[in-house]
Amino acid sequence: MRVIQGRTTVADVDEFLAFLDSVADEHDCVVQAFDARYVVDEAHLRTAVDRAARAWRRDDAIARDPGVEMLLYAAGRRQISRALELGVSEGEAVPVVAVVVGAFPGDPFETDDREAAAADALAAEWTDDAVLGTATDEARICEFFGITDAERTATAASLSELVRERVSLLVVEK
């Protein structure tokens, strides 16, 4: 798994998604992009990719597309319409983070040349900004994941740990 982050102009979401699909097809990888304001850190994405790959290996996937499965887990939601809020929106200098996975669902953390080439193709289209942590919007994340001030006060867990808990609990949410 490789994580690529930066900023880009998204004039049309469908065209942006078509670009991601073309990179994925050309390099035989799974590519999924997220609005960086909803992503706490790389551990959030790693947990989502791990749980999505596990669901596919167990033939227990929610979605028919590996990228959508990763999006569902990253969002901690079974409904695609709700999970799409984590997707990229139209705008200028949009903070984007994407995961590229070559060995899905096998070992999604095994890296190879296909992943590197796909990651390079994405990075060539985006500015080289580190948006994870800088574009992350804690209030937006807490609202989206239903993390209350009381919960944060009552635990020593970090926001990342609380979000990863929501990601992991997706399989028990019915």
Results as ranks from 00 to 15, higher is better:
V49P: 01
A156I: 04
E165F: 12
T9H: 12
F34M: 05
G146Y: 02
T155Q: 11
D120M: 14
A33R: 05
V13C: 07
D107E: 14
V97M: 10
S89W: 07
A119C: 04
D60M: 10
A135Y: 10
T47H: 06
D41Q: 13
E42W: 11
A43V: 07
V96R: 01
V94Y: 04
D35H: 09
D28Q: 12
V3N: 05
A150V: 13
E115H: 06
L20P: 00
L20S: 02
D107I: 08
A139R: 13
R46Y: 14
G106Y: 04
S160F: 03
A119E: 03
I80W: 13
V49W: 03
W126I: 00
T153E: 15
T155A: 10
V97T: 14
E15D: 15
D25R: 10
E69M: 07
A33Y: 04
L72G: 01
D25M: 05
G87S: 10
A156S: 15
G87H: 00
D12N: 11
R46Q: 15
R77Q: 11
A157M: 06
D149A: 14
S158V: 08
A139C: 06
A52D: 01
A117F: 04
A157Q: 11
E161D: 15
V3Y: 09
V68L: 09
F109W: 07
L17Y: 15
G102M: 05
R82S: 14
G76C: 04
R58W: 07
G91S: 01
A154T: 07
D21A: 09
G67H: 04
A53M: 05
A43K: 07
F104P: 02
A93Y: 08
L132H: 09
A123C: 05
A24T: 00
A123I: 00
R51E: 15
E26H: 14
R78D: 08
A93P: 03
A118P: 08
T155P: 07
D107A: 14
L86N: 02
R77A: 02
R7F: 04
A36N: 01
S160T: 05
R7Q: 11
E161Y: 12
I147A: 02
Q32T: 03
A43R: 12
I62K: 01
A154S: 11
I141H: 07
F145I: 01
A130G: 13
R54F: 12
W56L: 07
A139S: 14
T111D: 15
Q5T: 11
D120T: 14
L71E: 03
C29E: 03
A121L: 06
